[in-house]
Design a binder for these strands. Structure first.
Lengths: 196, 196, 196, 196
DNA sequence: ACATAAACGAGACGGTACGTCTTGTCTTGCG
DNA sequence: CGCAAGACAAGACGTACCGTCTCGTTTATGT
């Protein structure tokens, strides 16, 4: 004898998808602070009220899109060849390219801007990159425990990952290129100086 | 025998100061994205055109105020007692309080938001905290070279400082509190695990 | 079986009225070129966009108010006692007072200024005064056909009316008072010299 | 032993001419209400203060240019062939062309707009057209006294001229074309119906 | 099947802020 | 001391969005 609470139509999944899709497209195109709810509604073919009914702010839309993996996708997975220095180096090169690419330039900063007024975005941004899933940075570092000077048993894996990601954000904010030298230095910070 | 390039009135220093002052006050009060140029002009008793004549955007105003030390001031200097672990711990406690305080909450995120559309702000933010002046983090770490496991001769001081600051920004974005455990972990990332 | 062309909210008649009312009040108070759209919006308790949505310029607002009879009203009707000379004289005295009165001073010139960038205003201004409704000048002259030297069968009634109104506008522009002598002369121009 | 009343340079005639010239050019190009004092100063190569020092408003500049004959020039002189009907017809055709021409379109309305906030402009506008110099309308009508039905001895010449000019202004304001029919009607108003 | 009622698209509304333009005054240094 | 140049406080311009609110239409239940 389950009772339904009300009659009438349910939330339109098509509208939800269209909104998220329009949001991430326009985020990439115009950046977070030229992203307008009216623009999203118009591009998604949706009334503004449909957005306001389900989300509190535009940052909440971004947070949801981020959670669904619609933004960063799998572009930033850390490889695992067994050699953690090589893997980190490879990954940092990939990240560096995203930071500089025409589509990524601005995207990362846009996400930071979104995080600025929505803690969820910040958390999901951190989890998505440093987090503990498969392909995530923490996981990769954990697998290397014992093999590098800075990664003894009990090393603060999560904090190392966080510091690494933080350093990348800082570079994104100051538009410093992530060149070979910087990459080597970051690897050294994370796992220790190369053996002689 | 300097020659002046033109005649006519000269930039009003009083107006410049009033604008910067009004900007940082309102930044602290209302956050970066409720900071309005009209509001700054009105609070500074200045015409809008006087702002647009000299700055390209509100983030440029913040960048200039930051450069003049009107925002972070000397609140974030790293102490130097000779014991780098103790000094970092003390400093991180101070930073943690700024991040949580009613006046600092939002201020750091506001600066990040400003950095989001102005590379200068990002650079000055980094320099102001990680930079190499007296009382700056890099300087303090350099002084400790040789005394800690992660700080041998040739350690990538600047990158360590950057990673530390980045980690703090990331915590600011995700509103993670900077508790004793996190502080200890960050110290370990920077200078290595405590000796037995 | 009329079909509506779209769904959604409908134009607010209250806002429209408030805008027209505010516009004519401020026109009388401050004159056409100190009439600001922002001022109208503010006095009408309306957003600026609500004005721009429906009118192209401030002169279009004046044109509409004029069309609705909100400005000149019935102040300028030509009387009809059967004696066209007496009627014109009476009417010109009334017009002269409007031109000189504190509320009319400026109002007529303001309407001329509005006509300056909106043909509709010019047309409605002409129609409202010279036009062919009941109480209008043309009508009164037509009724007098055959009774005066300049008004034989086939006289160019409309052009006489237009010339008369034009002469009044020219006096308004040059701030020449409309004294008894001028009135008599204008009557003579319109209907001919008095009989001996 | 003439004494000068003060030291220092004297009003620059070159600047005065440049200002008047720039003003009438821009008046023709952009219309009275897009005519900006800054624009005049800039085009004339003059400081704004030099304008404000000598004129109270932009309409005063127009008034002065009008007085000097820099605007209407001799374009509107009434011919005198001895046949007043023909002369008026010719003149009205010329006026009609000015009203419709690309350079005159707007110019007349601009002058009306200027008259709107400067009685001098109105007066000079009337005098320049209806006035009593050689080639002026009143003069031409006076010469025809006795030869036409509406022009007996003692006819109100000045008022007829004024009514005619007023009718033209009204047509300029309402953008009514001055076609052959209208011209014939105006001639009839001024001098009476054509003889059978 | 029908009534109910929520979700929808559209978009008008009162507002705030934008970045630009112009006003009239003031300031500086040249001639 | 007149002038060209131009900074200044003030404030209106017309545009872009905000978040709320009405419309009229379109579904999905519950009766």
């Amino acid at each position: 004898m389950a009772v339904s609470s009300r009659s009438g139509p349910v939330r339109s999944e098509a509208a939800r998808q269209a909104i998220l899709q329009a949001a991430i497209e326009m985020l990439a195109e115009r950046g977070y602070d030229h992203l307008a709810i009216e623009g999203i509604a118009s591009r998604a073919g949706v009334g503004k009220q449909t957005i306001y009914r389900w989300w509190k702010s535009k940052s909440a839309i971004i947070a949801e899109a981020l959670l669904e993996g619609m933004i960063l996708g799998e572009r930033l997975e850390v490889p695992d060849t067994g050699d953690v220095r090589r893997d980190l180096t490879t990954w940092l090169h990939a990240v560096g390219e995203v930071l500089l690419s025409s589509q990524g330039e601005g995207l990362v900063r846009s996400l930071i801007a979104a995080a600025t007024d929505n803690a969820d975005v910040g958390q999901r941004l951190r989890d998505a990159i440093a987090g503990s899933g498969s392909g995530a940075l923490s996981t990769r570092l954990a697998a290397a425990i014992g093999s590098e000077p800075h990664l003894p048993e009990g090393a603060p894996i999560d904090d190392i990952a966080e510091a690494l990601v933080g350093a990348l954000l800082l570079r994104a904010l100051s538009r410093s290129p992530l060149d070979d030298h910087a990459i080597a230095a970051l690897v050294a910070v994370a796992v220790g100086p190369p053996r002689a």
